[in-house]
Simulated assay, not measured.
Amino acid sequence: MPVLKPHPPWRRDSMRRGTDVAQSWMTLIAGLLAEPVWLDRHGALVRDPSTPADTMAMSVAAGTVAACGASLLVFGADRAGGYLLDRRRSAQWEQEWAALDAERRHHRQ
């Protein structure tokens, strides 16, 4: 029984032609590099849908940014309040020292 060599689908005859081989390689590479395209109802290109892992990563990132922003806001309010209270205390302390100094000068004379 003779053994028949199977021919690749791009070869129609037993002759090997360079253009057939080149076209088949280009088709193979194009098929490997092709990516799915997502279209909306009107046929316009849209981004591909997110995977559950992408969605989870984005939600964790958004939560982290929100928590950091809120904590920075609270920290800033605390620092601003402390600064304002310190200014007020320093002004009161200055008035008390001025009154004590005036009283002391009065007793010296």
Rank of each mutant, 00 (worst) to 15 (best):
M1T: 13
M1F: 09
P2W: 01
P2I: 07
P2F: 10
V3Y: 12
P9W: 00
P9I: 07
P9H: 11
W10G: 01
W10M: 01
R11H: 06
R12A: 15
R12F: 01
D13R: 00
D13Y: 11
D13K: 09
M15F: 11
R17M: 02
R17L: 10
G18K: 13
T19W: 09
T19F: 04
D20E: 14
V21P: 01
A22Q: 01
Q23E: 08
Q23Y: 01
Q23G: 05
Q23W: 02
S24C: 06
S24I: 04
M26H: 01
M26W: 04
L28Y: 07
L28A: 14
I29W: 00
I29K: 01
I29Q: 01
I29V: 09
A30H: 04
L33D: 00
L33N: 00
L33R: 05
L33V: 02
E35V: 02
E35S: 00
P36E: 06
P36T: 07
V37T: 09
V37C: 14
W38I: 07
W38T: 01
L39D: 10
L39R: 14
L39S: 13
D40S: 01
R41E: 12
R41F: 10
H42A: 15
H42N: 11
H42Y: 10
G43L: 05
G43F: 04
A44C: 13
A44K: 13
V46C: 08
R47W: 09
R47G: 04
R47I: 07
T51C: 03
T51G: 03
A53P: 00
A53R: 06
D54V: 03
D54A: 15
D54R: 05
T55K: 11
M56E: 09
A57W: 05
A57K: 08
M58Q: 03
S59I: 12
V60H: 02
V60K: 02
V60P: 00
V60Y: 03
A61D: 04
A61N: 00
A62V: 03
A62C: 05
G63P: 03
G63Y: 02
G63T: 04
T64Y: 02
T64L: 04
V65F: 03
V65L: 06
V65I: 07
A67H: 09
C68T: 15
C68V: 12
G69T: 13
L73K: 13
F75W: 10
G76H: 09
G76I: 04
D78N: 09
D78S: 11
G81V: 03
L84M: 02
L85I: 04
L85C: 08
D86Q: 08
R87N: 12
R89S: 11
A91D: 13
A91M: 03
E94L: 10
E94D: 10
Q95H: 08
Q95W: 09
E96R: 15
E96M: 06
W97D: 12
W97V: 13
A98H: 08
A98L: 15
A98N: 13
L100T: 12
L100S: 14
A102Y: 05
A102H: 11
R105G: 12
R105Q: 14
H106D: 15
H106P: 03
H107C: 12
R108A: 11
Q109I: 12
